[in-house]
Structures are given as C-alpha cells and as structure tokens.
Amino acid sequence: MFKIQKIPLLLGGGVLTVGIFWFGLTPPADLLSNQALESTPDYFLEGVTANEFDANGIKQRTIVSEKLLHYADRDITLLTTPDIQQWSQDRSVWHASAENGEIKDGSKDILLKGAATVVRQRQDGGTMTLTADAIHYLENQQILVSEGNASVISAEGSTKADKIQYDQASEQAQLEGNVTGYYEKL
C-alpha cells in the first residue's frame, strides 16, 4: 500500500527535474538584447573631413569631426567635437562648433549640443556670434534656434536670453525669457 503512494511523488519529482533541465538548455531567443542592438552603430569613422559641393562645384560645407557614428535603426549620425564651416548665398562664412552634433539621415539640419557656438563672418568684416547649451540649425528655414544660456553678440552689444531664434537671411533675432542686453559706450 505504501509502495503505490510513492509512485505519484516519484513521477512529480521526475517531471520537475526534466522541466528545470529543459528550461536551462533552451538558448535565449536573441543573443544580443534589443538594448545592445540600439547602442551599436552600423558603421563608424574616425578623423572625419567631409566636403559638400553644389552643382557648380562650389564648396558649400565642410564638416570635420573627431568621430562619426551612424545608427541605421535610428536614421541618425552622431558627431564628436564637430567643427563645421558653411558658406551662405551672400558668401558670408558660418563657423559652428560644439561638443556633440546630430544629423538626421536625409536632412541637412544639424543639432549642436554642449558649448555650442556659431560665428558669422560677414563680407564687410562684421561678425555675429551665437552661443548656447544647444543650437539647432534648420536648413530649409535658414534659421538657428539657440536654447539654454543663449547669447547673441554683435557690434551693437551682447544680449542674453533663455531662447534665441536667429534668421540668417534677414539677420533678425527673436529673444525670449530673461532677456538682458549689454551695450558698451563707444
């Protein structure tokens, strides 16, 4: 009588052992977790210099970057210490630099982050400088949007604000939030 009662116990123990053994054997569905895939560029370059020309062979833009990483799944290129030179239609020179840069695939917009600076050197020698935590260059609208400790410095003086939107063509700027202007007496 005692023997019959032992059989279910033995069966249960056996099933349990097989289950643990089996579950331990099956390999994980993907060797690399999604998180790992996202942080892996599909290609990267070091010591990069990229030149861009228009249809007439006139240089439009030069991008120099310590490191360039491209992420296919996010359609984005990340730049380390980008240093960018760009010529606008009136041939004034724009010089931009920052700790990091981002360019979306298929777009000419550039997001500069970390000690971002843009300097415009006009044909008449005048300069205009934008500085901020982040500066977003939007190619189609030809505007620069500076956010976080933003400042615009020109011959007139220097003005700080939380946010500054600068229009390259009209040379006009909209400043918002804690605006402080400082004008030296000549």
Partner: peptide
C-alpha cells in the same frame, strides 16, 4: 553716467541687425 555702458532687462526682445535696431 553718460559714459557708462548700458544694461537692459526685459521679458523678450526682437533684434534687426541690418537696421541696427532692437525692441525690448
């Protein structure tokens, strides 16, 4: 006074560098 730098504070501003004007 009149030889000192000028400091301006405001909520927002609009600058026109070509015209040399700024509105606070």
């Amino acid at each position: 006074d009149t030889s000192q730098p000028i400091q301006i504070e405001a909520d927002k501003a609009f600058m026109d560098q070509k015209a040399g004007t700024a509105i606070y």
